[in-house]
């Protein structure tokens, strides 16, 4: 593995460790809902502070179940990852093409 690839792998491992450590250390223990979303907690805090507050608008479309919602989140991530992969694929192909052309050019002249 090149030095570059090693650094990149290390970066990924660090990110994975940061995500897994809170789970492994059980930091969600003692909570009513371990590892709930912060957005939802903020909503709960609002209703707790201002029990009289009524949301005055509701979403036009709401995923009918947690499964459908997670599917749509996965779709969002997949779309993004797909475009990113396409970008790096195109770039790699162009570089290889340029290299091949450069290697072939001297032969064509002689």
């Amino acid at each position: 593995m090149s030095r570059n690839a090693k650094i990149n792998t290390l970066l990924l491992l660090l990110v994975a460790a940061l995500a897994v450590l809170p789970l492994a250390l059980g930091l969600g223990e003692g909570k009513e809902e371990p590892f709930a979303g912060a957005d939802g907690q903020a909503e709960a805090a609002i209703t707790e502070m201002r029990p009289d507050y009524e949301p005055w608008f509701s979403p036009l479309y709401e995923p009918p179940s947690a499964e459908v919602e997670s599917a749509l989140f996965a779709l969002q991530a997949a779309l993004g990852a797909g475009v990113l992969a396409y970008y790096f694929g195109v770039r790699r192909g162009r570089r290889q093409g340029a290299r091949a052309a450069a290697a072939a050019a001297p032969d064509a002249e002689s």
Partner: peptide, 27 residues
């Protein structure tokens, strides 16, 4: 254009990932 698309795609991926954190919640 391609790199702009990739930058938008990066935001798409990252804002879809809910990751556990030290406070025992996810963001």
């Amino acid at each position: 254009t391609l790199l702009l698309g990739a930058s938008g795609a990066f935001t798409f991926v990252l804002s879809a990932l809910k990751i556990p954190s030290v406070t025992g919640s996810c963001s």
